[in-house]
Design a protein around this nucleic acid. Structure first.
Length: 807
RNA sequence: GCGGGCGUGGUGGAAUGGUAGACACGUUGGUCUUAGAAGCCAAUGCCAAAAGCGUGAAGGUUCAAGUCCUUUCGCCCGCACCA
């Protein structure tokens, strides 16, 4: 036999016919939900990244299955989104057509991978049966006040012609097309993820996620402890400012409001009107990227109004300046130039007073601006207090007058979900002239995406140009009304797909509560780290919101998370067609078979690191497979031989059991590379054994263990070898080998000899040897080295080493 | 600027504080062959070398440090006017 893609086909067929991977919902084995992030259906063949994610994790799923878990391992498609729409704009092919074609092709390809996916549980987000429930979730969030519409300055991508969520803006540019994002005021739908900020932050600690991802998510949520301080304005308004440094209040020099703040016009005195209006409109024109640039000089204008410092009654000017962000805190801040760098720059430029109120802990006057914590001076009764003491003291005083309170602020903003694009789930809302925004009732869902729509992008939603879609009746009052013309961000689709898999055919509800309470949370989730602040955060929010609405009973969707690394081109660069450094898995697979390709990916990289492609590695994996085949064939061809269990048998049995032991551990750690290294060592040990006097029955047993251990990595090959060994179908219904503790006990031990911690030699000795004898043996072995040295201390680590401290 | 991570042979990468470099790739030599390829055997951190030196650099803790601590350099990632 020579392993090849023919063997792959043989077993894929048999697995399909016998429904080997059919998931049994009623099994009494312990469930294990193993999930990889689903993929965008693309017309191209599966690339290395797909294989690395789906193929490698499949090996883990097989391992768990053999360990006796009832593994749920579904696969589906994240099918809405811009690429299909952009392709349609270019070629005129409707997105639905391209997408469905791609899904069909990709499904075939995934089947050729030989993974354990149960395709009865697949889903596709552009399917009506799916997006009906995406829309249903929207209406539930709307009913609960978690979906709302507001006019807001939003991130607008002039190239994609749509708004973007904060998470989709990278360095002031569209994450997708790199075009600089501009600010635009538009009425948009938001999900109130900020309601869950505290819980989303708090629960991170309990997750088995990479520390880095947890940190990224924590920073993104960005909780900060501070105070809200109310300022009376001379026009009778009251404005609140958020600050983390209430202790510096006596150093107040002026206050600043963001240009987008709605109170700006009211604050502006007639004499300043022209200047302020110009400033505000200039600020609006600035691209996000320019405004963010920290080399930019601070600018601002005086509004003509004055605010009163609530602690000492002094009046300070109100400025408008774009260094204040409208969307963080209250969009209004107190400026203490002596103790804040930004305020210091600004005050210096515009000649505003700079008053020191903080000295360092030792009472020294540090150069200004001094932004660290310290001790208060020039602060009335608070002088002499430390920052930590003064903050509650000052806020407490203000609180009695209703002018201050301690509070927390989050960096996280609400999630903007409207998109002015075609290929997405329509927002299920009807705008009625009498009733306002009305959610489409469940009985009228789905709101179908019409097919005859011109989707040329011009900043307007394509659906607006489809009168049959737009015109409808208000579900409440029956009046003529208009549909919402926008579609939902595709991250909405992916925020709940893992809930749909276990109950994907349910046409009465999004998912059955009992079913998903049983199957969820996902036990192992594997996907790219780039989703840290997007998908992974949104999915957590959906889970918590649905829980609070009573649709499910768990708090977190993904208990344990792993990020796969990235496979780079042979040149160490990210693979891309334009660089011409892509590797097509199909070439390797047709040449060597899919198991060879899969094992190469498993062996050649640390899973979470990835790295550059190396063609030689695939070859070497093919050689490994040949050696395994040769082992099985040679074993079968052997005459019966001896039946003795002697030292060589014990030695091989020891290797067999240490292999089981370390592989079981490494697989749980997603260390596929070291697992396969152990397999190579075990193979070498088997080949060594075969050079001697052979006990065939014993050898066969060891070879059976070998094939079992190999099976998660090389499913087709192992199934074939299992059959060759005369074993019953299927190897994947076999149990993962268990360690025989007795075989791990050895009669001898290897002792390392060190002097001052440096290796001098080793020796093999009977386990029963006592300490003093051992030390003497060690000394004897290196007596030449010790000849002119004095041993001043002897360290003995039981069963391991002797370290002689010498002079 | 703040936060996090990582620096180990020619390469990918291994090492519960206890033999650094497992397992491979590559390279070299041998064997087989008319020849080549494949296979098999051997060698392979540095140094000609038993000794000595070696995990970015410098200190420290320890009988013993790639691993723990301090400082420092370099690279990568995240956040970035967040008050």
């Amino acid at each position: 036999m020579v392993y090849s893609s023919e063997i792959d086909k043989k077993w894929q067929k048999k697995w399909a016919e016998t429904e080997l991977y059919k998931f049994d919902e009623n099994s009494d084995k312990k469930k294990l939900y193993c999930l990889e992030m689903f993929s965008y259906p693309s017309s191209a063949n599966l690339h290395c990244g797909h294989w690395y994610n789906y193929g490698v994790v499949d090996s883990w799923a097989r391992f768990k299955r053999m360990q006796g878990y009832n593994v749920f391992h579904p696969m589906g498609f994240d099918a809405f989104g811009l690429p299909a729409e952009n392709y349609a704009i270019k070629t005129g092919t409707p997105p639905k057509e391209t997408t469905l074609k791609s899904i069909a092709k990709m499904t075939e390809q995934l089947k050729c991978m030989g993974a354990t996916f149960d395709w009865n549980y697949t889903l596709n987000t552009c399917d009506e049966d799916y997006y009906k429930w995406t829309q249903w979730i929207f209406t539930k969030l709307f009913e609960r006040g978690l979906a709302y519409q507001k006019e807001a300055p939003v991130n607008w991508c002039p190239s994609c012609q749509t708004v973007l969520a904060n998470e989709q803006v990278k360095d002031g540019c569209c994450e997708r097309c790199k075009t600089p994002v501009v600010q635009k005021k538009m009425k948009q739908w938001f999900f109130k993820i900020t309601d869950y900020a505290d819980e989303l932050l708090k629960d991170i600690d309990g997750l088995d996620w990479p520390e880095k991802t947890k940190k990224i998510q924590k920073n993104w949520i960005g909780k900060s402890h501070g105070s809200l301080i109310t300022f009376d304005i001379d026009n009778g308004m009251k404005l609140e400012a958020f600050t983390t440094r209430a202790d510096t209040l006596y150093g107040l020099s002026y206050v600043v409001i963001a240009p987008e703040h709605p109170a700006v016009p009211e604050l502006t005195k007639p004499e300043q009107k022209q200047a302020v209006e110009k400033y505000v409109s200039d600020a609006a024109k600035l691209k996000e990227i320019d405004r963010m640039s920290d080399s930019r000089e601070r600018t601002g204008v005086f509004t003509g109004s004055y605010a009163t410092n609530p602690v000492d009654g002094r009046k300070v000017p109100v400025w408008v300046a774009d260094y204040v962000i409208a969307t963080y805190g209250t969009g209004f801040v107190m400026a203490v130039p002596a103790h804040d760098e930004r305020d210091y720059d600004f005050a210096t430029k515009y000649n505003l007073p700079i008053t020191r109120v903080i000295v360092d802990k030792d009472g020294k006057e540090q150069p200004l601006p001094f932004c660290e914590h310290g001790k208060l001076i020039n602060s009335a009764e608070f002088s002499g207090m430390t920052t930590e003491e003064a903050i509650p003291a000052i806020v407490n005083k203000l609180e009695k007058e209703g002018k201050g309170k301690l509070t927390t602020m989050f960096r996280l903003r609400d999630w903007l979900i409207s998109r002015q694009r075609y290929w997405g789930a329509p927002i299920p809302v009807i705008h009625c002239p009498h009733c306002g925004a009305v959610a489409v009732p469940e009985s009228d869902l789905p709101v179908r995406l019409p097919e005859n729509v011109e989707f040329r992008p011009d900043g307007e939603s394509p659906l607006k140009r489809c009168p049959e879609f737009m015109h409808t009746k208000c579900p409440k009052c029956g009046a003529d009304a208009m549909r919402d013309p926008d579609t939902m961000d595709t991250f909405v689709d992916s925020s709940w797909y893992f809930l749909r898999y276990p109950d994907n055919k349910n046409d009465k509800e999004a998912f059955n509560k009992d079913k998903i309470n049983k199957m969820l949370p996902v036990d192992k989730y594997v996907g790219g780290q780039e989703h840290a602040t997007m998908h992974l955060l949104y999915a957590r929010f959906f889970t918590k919101a649905l829980r609070d609405m009573g649709y499910l009973d768990f708090d977190e969707p993904f208990l344990s998370l792993v990020h796969q690394g990235m496979i780079l081109g042979p040149d160490g660069q990210k693979m891309s067609k334009s660089k011409g450094n892509t590797i097509n898995p199909d070439d390797s697979i047709s040449k060597y078979g899919s198991d060879v390709f899969r094992m190469f990916l498993e062996f050649a990289f640390a899973y979470t690191d990835g790295g550059p492609w190396n063609e030689n590695g695939v070859e070497s994996m093919a050689r490994f497979v040949k050696r395994v085949e040769a082992l099985v064939e040679k074993t079968l061809a052997l005459p019966d031989g001896s039946t003795e269990i002697g030292t060589t048998e014990k030695k091989l049995d020891f290797v067999r059991n240490t292999t089981i032991q370390s592989m079981t551990r490494d697989m749980d750690l997603f260390q596929f590379n070291t697992s396969l290294a152990r397999m190579m060592e075990y193979l070498n040990a088997l080949n060594d054994y075969m050079t001697g006097n052979i006990n065939k029955a014993f050898l066969l047993d060891c070879v059976k263990t070998y094939v079992l251990l190999l099976s998660p990595f090389a499913p087709h090959l192992s199934e074939e070898l299992w059959e060759k060994l005369g074993q019953p179908y299927s190897i994947f219904n076999q149990e993962w080998p268990k360690v025989n503790e007795a075989a791990l006990v050895q009669d001898t031990m290897k002792i390392v000899i060190q002097t001052n911690g440096k290796l001098r030699g080793t020796f093999e000795v009977a386990k029963s040897t006592d300490k003093d004898t051992l030390i003497q043996m060690a000394k004897d072995q290196i007596k030449d080295f010790l000849a002119d040295k004095e041993v001043i201390k002897e360290i003995y680590v039981p069963n391991k080493l002797v370290n002689l401290v010498i002079k």
